[in-house]
Design a protein around this nucleic acid. Sequence first.
DNA 1: AAGTGGTCTAGACCACCAT
DNA 2: TGGTGGTCTAGACCACTTA
Lengths: 265, 265
Amino acid sequence: MINLANPPATRPQGREALQGALLGPDPLYKQVKHQLVRSLAEGEWKAGALLPSEPRLASRFGVGISTIRAAIGELVAARVLARRQGKGTFVPLHDDRLSIYQFFHVVRNDGTKQLPVSELVSLSRAKADDEVADLLRLPRGAASAQVFRLRNVLRVSGVPVVYSDIVIPATLFPGLNEATVRKGGTTLYAVYQSRFGVSIIRTIERLRAVKSDTAAARIFGMRSGDPVLEVRRIAYTFNDVPVEFRRSRVDTRQFHYFLDLGRDT
Amino acid sequence: MINLANPPATRPQGREALQGALLGPDPLYKQVKHQLVRSLAEGEWKAGALLPSEPRLASRFGVGISTIRAAIGELVAARVLARRQGKGTFVPLHDDRLSIYQFFHVVRNDGTKQLPVSELVSLSRAKADDEVADLLRLPRGAASAQVFRLRNVLRVSGVPVVYSDIVIPATLFPGLNEATVRKGGTTLYAVYQSRFGVSIIRTIERLRAVKSDTAAARIFGMRSGDPVLEVRRIAYTFNDVPVEFRRSRVDTRQFHYFLDLGRDT
DNA sequence: AAGTGGTCTAGACCACCAT
DNA sequence: TGGTGGTCTAGACCACTTA
């Protein structure tokens, strides 16, 4: 039998070079997916932008529309892209409620979700210490290991709930200052995205119960030594490039950290 | 134009009744997915069992193979099913490493993952209090609110790391005793599955930092009042039916709770 | 060699959105 | 009305597993 529907040697001409199209073992849709991520990382489609339609992308890559759909489908599942019927496929913004709750898991003890209000406490420039330099994949002690350091308090209904110490590479956020942070967006990640084109799409977190230090105790209005939840987070943009390290302390007396593992069904 | 490939009025005869096939707005593959979950919940395919092949399921439901693949694909994404090329589609077992780590997120501070050893401390029968009865959707104070209560210590390399208080409905686990728990499987969820046909596929967790009580302090070898991580979990089987509530305390001095949000890309 | 899931295609209609 | 993504199908070949 001959496959008339898919003659491997008779593919359209105008296709972009696909990594390992003839050599590697990766399926076509994975290669397409990788190319899409590369274009996103290079800023071909900025945050909020509309991608070309699926038929257009199909002819651009010289593949069938189902192949494009498989690639986009995985990116949508990973929240790297968003589809809206009748509109098109977008690079999602970090400004809407859904995106915010993707990385904000602190809810009231009764289960109520409420958006926090962020207050910048301080912003300074420094050189990353070795530990943080390693986490952010910056050269140890070099001049290019320059970072911004931010301190942050999140309040819900005026009550301070999260106190964070944030480190980001200076090279990725040129000209960052207090005004940029305060007026740049509803959340810090919205600022990264709208002002500097850096989209956070993945985080890794490590949680511990620790004794509060004096600074945290003062902010939260508790005794020094009382238990607080410590969250160490590394945040990544496309291609698993780390762009932020933060250490947060959460007052879990009236709030808690909420996790839903294995939604859908 | 006429759709020759998909004539809506000319579908095969032998199809199972699909919920709302002619009335509801749900797409076909969602209906198929729901039917598959229903069959799983009813025990048509037990844990570890092989499902019929995709062409067989397609003809059984009277749909195209791609529709079956869409339905199974979502269930695989939710870890309700597992596919293996050349073998078939399975109901996954809770015995392999991958499945265990799906619900066990405690890792050593250096990042090393190691399987814990479970020790049953006590098992008793009781009536659920109102709060737990509500969580497990049991009638408050009724005779059918009978539950088993288990206490558990998890050790890694002999070091006690997690101390849990577990409540499960007695009706779902008839004849449960200490020997069943000790010999039933590598983890408690493996026991639920292999001995009682109850597959845990989803959990909801709430995390807090709290002061250790005397019991936890004794087990962990710390001072009473030292911070420990408290995890309250509700575990669900198919169709979001809750089957377990547990409150765990984690000693996060040498270990921490690890989260990877938004894998893939 | 036979059977399974994995990939890929072409093409139809439907549902939604803007104009 | 025209364009978009959403659904659904039929059918081909590929890759893997088991015997």
